[in-house]
């Protein structure tokens, strides 16, 4: 015993000293932000708070939401930074989020802040549905560009459209929920019935349809504007189409997970996420950010996108999510691949 103490004590002290010198706190941050942006976001944040290390857990919206819900009795995350507001509403309804009004929250557009007395989440930017259209492949297939959602049900596009599965993809869900809101419950399902006839397949993630369109695997991918702009910047022969009826959108938002080990650090992180600098950071990919007056036009972003954004009812989306997904699965999942 004595021996153990004699060597253990200095060792313990030196470990303490080492941690004190770096004074490093680690936060586990769940996110659905595009993988290529993660490092940039963390770097910008660390410029202000070098003492807080961000450990990203990145997956598609559905997966991150599932993970959080699965861990509801034993949360692993400290902060959620960059997840669909619909999902955060779901978490809120499980009592999983810690209400917190970050410093400077009053600078944000109230639409982008949770409506509680103390908000449980704050928005970052809006993420907007769009259609990625590969001009080269479309021409090969003899297609003309669609201009509206309804156009996509045209027989011409049979087998040429890919969209994300709303069960796993946030983008997929915002498409479905926007159609239900725009066309009404009945009209929405009718529309999807018709669209389903043209869909080649449903993908797991929301960015994949656009990446597949960019790679020419499919002429038309229902995805979101940000992804389209990125692929276009990479040199893909893409056109980003904003359907004329309007487009669904969701917010990327931030929240603290109730029961975090380090509330103080989590609050520092959330404070940062609503600063002007953070907003400018989001703006490099997203044309709409939560703080009015910050956004500058984004390269390759389609025109008229902002005007096309529908008035989204997040509560409708969150509270009907389960039943919508169930209905969707019943109708479209598991059918054998449409012949095309």
């Amino acid at each position: 015993m004595k021996l153990t103490k004699t060597w253990a004590a200095p060792l313990f002290a030196s470990v303490l000293a080492a941690t004190a010198a770096q004074a490093e706190t680690e936060l586990t941050v769940y996110t659905a932000i595009e993988a290529e942006d993660l490092a940039r976001y963390a770097e910008t944040f660390n410029a202000h708070h070098p003492d807080i290390k961000v450990n990203w857990v990145r997956d598609s919206t559905g997966v991150v939401t599932a993970k959080l819900l699965a861990e509801r009795d034993n949360p692993q995350a400290d902060v959620v930074w960059g997840l669909a507001a619909t999902s955060l509403l779901l978490l809120k309804s499980e009592g999983m989020l810690e209400p917190y009004a970050p410093a400077g929250v009053e600078m944000l557009d109230p639409k982008f802040v949770d409506a509680g007395d103390t908000p449980t989440w704050v928005g970052m930017d809006a993420w907007v549905a769009s259609v990625c259209y590969n001009t080269i492949e479309a021409e090969k297939a003899g297609l003309t560009p669609p201009t509206s959602w309804k156009d996509l049900t045209n027989e011409m596009y049979k087998g040429h459209v890919i969209m994300p599965n709303p069960n796993s993809s946030g983008t997929g869900f915002l498409d479905v929920s926007s159609w239900l809101q725009m066309f009404g419950e009945e009209g929405g399902w009718e529309y999807m019935d018709a669209l389903h006839e043209n869909i080649a397949r449903y993908t797991h993630s929301g960015s994949k349809p656009c990446k597949l369109a960019a790679a020419g695997e499919i002429p038309i991918g229902v995805s979101f504007a940000f992804r389209g702009a990125k692929s276009k910047a990479d040199g893909a022969p893409l056109e980003i189409i904003v359907p004329s009826e309007g487009v669904g959108w969701d917010m990327e938002a931030t929240a603290i997970v109730a029961g975090t080990d380090d509330l103080e650090a989590a609050q520092k992180l959330v404070d940062f996420t609503v600063t002007k600098e953070a907003m400018e950071m989001y703006n490099s990919g997203y044309a709409v950010v939560a703080m009015p007056g910050v956004a500058k036009p984004v390269k390759f972003f389609p025109e008229g996108l902002l005007d096309a954004m529908i008035a989204n009812d997040f509560e409708f989306a969150a509270n009907n999510r389960a039943s919508i997904l169930e209905e969707w699965q019943k109708r479209y999942d598991g059918k054998s691949e449409p012949k095309g």
């Binding site: 559905g62 997966v63 939401t65 599932a66 819900l69 699965a70 599965n165 069960n167 796993s168 080649a200 397949r201 449903y202 797991h204 997904l325 699965q329 999942d333 598991g334 059918k335 054998s336 691949e337 449409p338």
Partner: peptide, 19 residues
């Protein structure tokens, strides 16, 4: 697999996709 569902993928979809 595309839209061709099999059991193993269903487990993944049920758990990861739909919680």
């Amino acid at each position: 697999g595309g839209q061709f569902n099999v059991l193993a993928v269903d487990i993944y979809k049920q758990v990861i996709g739909q919680q």
